[in-house]
Nucleic acid binder design. Structure first.
Lengths: 210, 210
DNA sequence: GTCTATAATTAGATAGAC
DNA sequence: GTCTATCTAATTATAGAC
């Protein structure tokens, strides 16, 4: 039985088109069920492709996962206003606030990245090691460096530098990563007014009032 | 081939003993891989039991999951100092700080509950609906009520009441739920000194300085 | 590049011997 | 209550026709 929608079979739509659809479907599947709980057949069905096309366009489920994560990170970087930029004391406060707002906006619009990494961060493994080595470490160091500047200028709240990264990501993104739970509580996390209030809240949690 | 450790076969150890071992093994498996990524056979092997014993002692994988979550919640409640107690303005600040410290200590000692719920909260489903209906709603309402008291007394930081629950859980627990990631960054989240500093940080994020 | 067919493995659940 | 065996269904990956 064919995997794609029944009726007439798929015609060649071009490699790039199929890759795109597979990545988009994979992002949703991996975010909802985690890597191990995800099924290549479900991903292919969502993408209106065949299960074996995953192994053709990507060499394995693992590679599809990496391609999905890198797609999401590219979108995040497009959202953030140069978070790795060197800043002096005068700019640090505004840079931090803008970064936090960017993180919150992105988490609300694209909760899949935080969902995927909350799944992966729960246990050691090759995917987590790859992600930390190629993506997290640089971002972590940049944030801690910025935090040290804010501590020196007296702008930082009393948050430990070793814990600031995870505290910030957690405060900024769990609301959206676990939006299905919030919705069952009668809250709508992704309304723009709610996003704005939440972003302001997170900034207030980490920066001392001027 | 037998599932338990090879060699001599298991002898009757008593129903309660087997249930205990299965729950403990299930907690670790569900936390690491999520419900859908978890295997009953792996759980049984860890518990030195047979896969079919899961269906005997619990009627399904789903019921084993619920038993595991309720075990963890019982441990959490033993840790928290009556978080649902009514408090007047004078006590609210101390109650909140004690609750936060309890949440942080528990997340550090037993990251499995937060891991399991971060997996489940990523997508709608029967397990999430059950959890919210039977456990989350009451706790959420109690926290928001306490928060309203703190807002009225001027002790609360500028954090929105609709977002305070997830912001707090995120800030307090992601550090431990994703401890494998933190460890790859060279941080040891579960050292007692680190836990204490993190707990103090979270309190400082949510309460205005006195 | 797409699609079918299939290999090899594993999943959860159940029936029945002991 | 334990354990073996088995059923049905689903998994990823691969080989080969088109």
């Amino acid at each position: 039985m064919a995997t794609p929608s029944a009726g007439r079979s798929r015609v060649n739509r071009g490699s790039e088109h199929v890759r795109e659809r597979l990545i988009e479907a994979a992002i949703g599947e991996f975010a909802a069920h985690g890597f191990e709980g995800s099924s290549g057949r479900r991903i292919a069905t969502t993408a209106e492709a065949h299960q074996s096309q995953i192994n053709y366009h990507f060499s394995s489920k693992d590679d599809l996962w990496k391609a999905s994560v890198e797609r999401l990170l590219a979108e995040l970087d497009a959202q953030l206003v140069d978070p790795l930029a060197e800043v002096d004391g005068a700019d640090a406060r505004a840079t931090f606030a803008a970064t936090v707002r960017g993180l919150v906006e992105f988490a609300a619009r694209r909760p899949e990245l935080n969902r995927i990494m909350m799944h992966e961060g729960a246990a050691p493994g090759d995917r987590l090691a790859w992600f930390v080595d190629t993506h997290t470490r640089t971002r972590h160091e940049a944030l801690v460096a910025l935090w040290d500047v804010l501590v020196a200028s007296g702008d930082a709240a009393a948050v430990d530098r070793d814990a600031v990264y995870h505290s910030l990501i957690g405060a900024a993104s769990l609301f959206y990563a676990n939006a299905p739970e919030a919705e069952l509580l009668g809250i709508e996390p992704t309304r723009q007014a709610m996003i704005d209030r939440h972003a302001a809240s997170v900034v207030a949690m980490f920066l001392n009032p001027r």
